[in-house]
Design a protein around this nucleic acid. Sequence first.
RNA 1: GGCGGCGUAGCUCAGGUGGUCAGAGCACACGGCUCAUAAUCGUGUUGUCGAGGGUUCGAGUCCCUCCGCCGCUACCA
Length: 510
Amino acid sequence: MSRFYITTPIYYVNDAPHVGHAYCTVNADAMARWHRQVGDETLFLTGTDEHGQKVAEAAERNGVSPQAWTDQTSARFRASWDDLNISYDDFIRTTEPRHYETVQKFLTAIYDNGYIYKDYYRGLYCVSCEDYFTEEALTDGNCPVHGRPVVEMEEENWFFRLSAFQDRLLEWYGENPKATTPDTKRNEAVAFIKGGLRDISITRSSLSWGVPVPWDEKHVFYVWYDALVNYLTAIGYGRDEAMTAKWWPNVHHLIGKEIIRFHCVWWPAMCMAAGIEPPSHVQVHGWLLVGGQKLSKTMAGEGSVKLTDIAPQSLTSEFGVDPIRYYLLRDTPLGTDGDFSIEGITARYNTDLANNLGNLVARVATVVGSKCGGLSTAPASDSPLAAEAASAVEVARSAWQNFAPHTALEATWRLIGATNAHLEQNAPWKMEPGSDVDAVMGDALEALRIITALIVPAMPATAQEIWRRIGQSGEVATLNFDEVTRWGQLAAGIPITKGEPLFPRIRTEA
RNA sequence: GGCGGCGUAGCUCAGGUGGUCAGAGCACACGGCUCAUAAUCGUGUUGUCGAGGGUUCGAGUCCCUCCGCCGCUACCA
């Protein structure tokens, strides 16, 4: 047995939970569920990032304290994840005492190792924004937000000596080419490092909503520097050495491509500076890009809808939780950008869920009812479906192991297709009740039993419902993947339940 | 500007090291079946593999040029 530690980014509380967050979180959840199925001791971490100037400002605008504000907004993420059936083991908030303690210990270790020094940050500052801008970011030499002149300012900051890690990072990526996947994203990070690393300021003295710098009370850590450390907070860094040693550095950070630099450059360097191993793996995913007609009609008065405008719950309430989970996992391979559209969801729903899987469950139950007295029959050990099932199981296993949910599901649906074909070839509905029908339906039921185990990571609730209908006891998700997917275990004589259609077909207007 | 990627059937895309590599799914057409959510099964059509040139006995697959699209090129979610 091994361990599996997977994380999502912690989401910024000022954002409303949207489909982009859901995409990442559902993928992490499916991965965590699969690893639990194979018996890995699993830790699945998500949470919210609650510091920084924008949060402080939003709280003030709303007339509440920053803590009260983040309490409200963090809860929206929990509600979204509960709705999507996300099985996180820990939900971290960066305003928790445990996080303050770990951040301070971690950054003090870097400080003690000599990689943090005091200097002045110089830049063009907009007084209205209370923010710095680069030359290129200006509009006609003025602040792009307020259109007012910027002033050259300098601020005393603490800096992290990122430049000291350029060679070590390159060496590390040379030895660990799979530390960031897919390769194209790793190449991006490496190219960035090769371009030369500059030191970066990691504290602010202009605001107080952050983790205090232990050796300089006038400063708080810049939000990214506190945020990245959450991955260590959850495993007790600085507080529980045994727990930290147990989970680190074998972690899988699932992130979006927009934050590669922080996770694939800064974060490994920070770990090196603190004297611990860098995270073993960062899996980068692409973005979903909004397309389609309906979305634009319903959600945007004029023009384009952004993915960040779409609340996950607006989708689950219309299509159901498992269909949305399935769509997010199946439609877009992890690592590339994908299209997001209502038409796409509907197509997946009708084709894969209603026609293939749902209909299979229904027709099997009906024929068992009419030809086998409603009771299960035993599968044949030499059924052609046994080989199909073994193949699907093998492909799925390898795919989940390699962060490719869409491949695992594709293989599962090939088995569903093979099972439908098996029924067509044998046409049990034409046969008289007896051993021939029993053999055909035993094979179909057994294939369905294995299919059910295969869809657990993607559609846990649906899996459990099919499990119940085919007369199996207990929770399918708790059964060992390798054992439960072995052909030939279905017992005869168990009542099979027909039930309502699992996924009623969606009628689309022409 | 520099570095990197992409352009393959109507759509979404597979195609390490050149020789069944011209493919899959969806869509479409025809046929079968009627157990099932008008679902399902079988068969089939579509492509000068972005353009041009080169290397080779042989190139989506290597080289050059061009066209088009995209990403990264540093800090404040």
